[in-house]
Design a protein around this nucleic acid. Structure first.
Lengths: 121, 121
DNA sequence: CTCGGACGACTACTGTTGTAGTCTATCAAC
DNA sequence: GTTGATAGACTACAACAGTAGTCGTCCGAG
């Protein structure tokens, strides 16, 4: 699976939320903060097609785009990459790091404990 | 803090492990798989200086390089970025995701539980 | 039947990243 | 003192990412 850039990712997010969409529809749904022109969105779509992470089907004169990879797969790949690079591929150091950095609230801890408990059974 | 590329990161790793080092020493310690020439390492060092994530002090005719940012800070920033993008800034979904993807062994689970227990007290 | 607007294809241009080469000064060994 | 290795400074260049413009076509309104 090829790398997806930051901007390209924004387009994928749109299509993971709702698909299939036309180029114009994608452009409408991209976060307005980006202030993208329709051309920019189309370029992104073209590149994502070339990377085989999108597919398109003809719909009359237009295309309908839809993801060719599952969001979960992409997310797994990217988090795996980060964990490999920064935590030697181990999860525990990640959790430890987050804990140290106070990114874990009481509620988070409880939630994660419940999750782990469920996993063990 | 500016973005650090993949290759640049490899240089930072070396200096986080041991510093200060000369350019030549960094080059020696960079993972051999990269097969970098000393020039490449020097370019990286220069760029990292420009990004203010490294500092250098003169040592006769050479420079000694050392990190200007802590590894933990960088790691926190990058994991935060990923968590924001992919998990809406919440940690639990990350852990849930990793669990689903079978990236958690029995031992991991036990370890994390111990960690969380310690956190609560 | 014609014409404006929307569509996709292709092109453009800037900045960054990865990788390395050239140039000049200097130290160290003969 | 001359020379060769080594240091840093500057330059090069391709790939990719981000952003957008141009061109030819075709559909639909009149």
């Amino acid at each position: 699976m090829e790398r997806i850039g930051e901007a390209e990712y924004a387009v994928m997010e749109v299509l993971w939320k709702e698909a299939p969409l036309t180029a114009a529809e994608v452009a409408e749904r991209v976060p307005a903060e980006r202030g993208w022109s329709i051309r920019t969105v189309k370029t992104m779509l073209g590149r994502l097609l070339a990377k085989n992470v999108l597919r398109h089907e003809e719909d009359g004169r237009r295309y309908l785009y839809r993801p060719a990879i599952a969001r979960a797969d992409y997310v797994a790949q990217e988090s795996g990459r980060l964990i490999d690079r920064m935590f030697g591929g181990r999860i525990t150091p990640l959790v430890a790091h987050l804990a140290e950095r106070d990114r874990l609230s009481e509620a988070d801890i409880a939630e994660i404990e419940a999750l782990l408990k469920a996993l063990k059974s």
